[in-house]
Design a protein around this nucleic acid. Structure first.
Lengths: 208, 208
DNA sequence: GCAGAATACGAGCGATCGCTCGTGTTCACT
DNA sequence: AGTGAACACGAGCGATCGCTCGTATTCTGC
């Protein structure tokens, strides 16, 4: 069997210093994405900012896309934790309360690292190996659908498939747009409450 | 006064053949964006596909961004016509009917050139001179708000600002996502009707 | 028919990109 | 102290990019 060229990325960083190198590279990638944008995020620049040589970069990542993908994954995991814990909390609540919980969590999630979130949403070409950004909303979608199934006695007769799509898409779009494009809309606690009230009304009114 | 270098783009194409050149360039840009994506849309490739030399390209466009901006503008104008005519048609209708009209128009608009729309939405880095894509939704937003003002007696007491945001953002996100990411959701007339029904219910339920 | 303006051409410059590879350095283990 | 594996280095290759500029062609007005 032909052995793969040794210059390609080594699977695992076993020693501690290499672990640090990998972390530094991911962190540097995130910083550059935020500060300079996707176009200016070259491998040379990333390596330089990480205090590492390009050669080392290519020991652990097969290319630029892999770096960006790692940043996306890290960010997604953080969002995922917020989403999952919110859905767990909501699972025991009646619909109205549950929707409030989810909307509040959606805002919270979008506030984890808004600048990075914005770059990932607006500058990463969703093509080739980098299109898995949407996988995330599929997950939320399935989880929300499961909630609706368990609480179907509280709602009007709905097509679960369609209803989940409508709710998740709307909540995601509203919070995303509010946090990233209309920050004034969430400028203080009162405004945030008003936003949550309205979004909750939208969703609950639709489901019941 | 320092005169600008003559090599820079000339303002107007006065002769007919240059008019054709400009059109060919815009059309070629759109085609390449669709077929090859934003990254592969180089000025050389665009010129080649347009059957024109790079030199000519730079006579009429200061750079790649201007080409893409022209494509965006052309597309936006087409969408704008659909949106404006729908809002005009809706202006005399009661809310429920009006929302149906608008949702149907939103789907229609997203179907004008879905592949181009997708590229513009997903691959164009919304940075630098190319971030005006969102200007469009601002326009819709204002027009919809005007409708709500004229029909405020038909709805519950609402914050017009907030309500317009919620409605326009939701409709746009739902139709966009349905047309581009869930084509199965609009596969036949019955499915389209179901989608319009649900979206209308969402919005009308919220406004009343 | 002619002059000059408008239009079109395309080789190629300088910059940057992703990435390789030969070499030097540090670690783990004896 | 010695050895091989793991890790780090960075000059530089080949490709591509956006764009320029000297030249050739076509149109317009007289």
């Amino acid at each position: 069997m032909a052995r793969k060229p040794l210059t390609n990325p080594r699977k695992h960083a076993s020693q501690e210093r290499s672990r640090a190198t990998v972390d530094a590279l991911i962190e540097a990638t995130a910083r550059i994405l935020i500060l300079e944008g996707f176009d200016r995020a070259s491998t040379n620049r990333i390596a330089e900012r990480a205090g590492v040589s390009v050669g080392s970069l290519y020991q652990y990542f097969p290319g630029k896309d892999a770096l960006v993908a790692a940043v996306i994954d890290r960010h997604r995991q953080e969002l995922g934790e917020v989403a999952r814990s919110a859905l767990q909390k909501a699972s025991g609540q009646p619909i109205k309360q549950a929707v409030r919980t989810l909307v509040a969590a959606a805002i919270e999630a979008h506030r984890i690292d808004p600048r990075l979130h914005r770059v990932l949403a607006e500058q990463i070409p969703r093509t080739g190996r980098l299109e898995k950004v949407e996988t995330f909303s599929r997950e939320n979608y399935a989880l929300f659908r499961a909630y609706l199934e368990r609480h179907s006695d509280e709602l009007r007769a709905v097509d679960l498939e369609l209803a989940s799509f409508v709710c998740v898409t709307s909540i995601e779009a509203l919070t995303h747009s509010a946090v990233l494009h209309n920050p004034a809309m969430l400028s203080d606690d009162a405004a945030v409450k008003a936003f949550i009230d309205e979004t909750t009304r939208l969703i609950v009114g639709y489901l019941q």
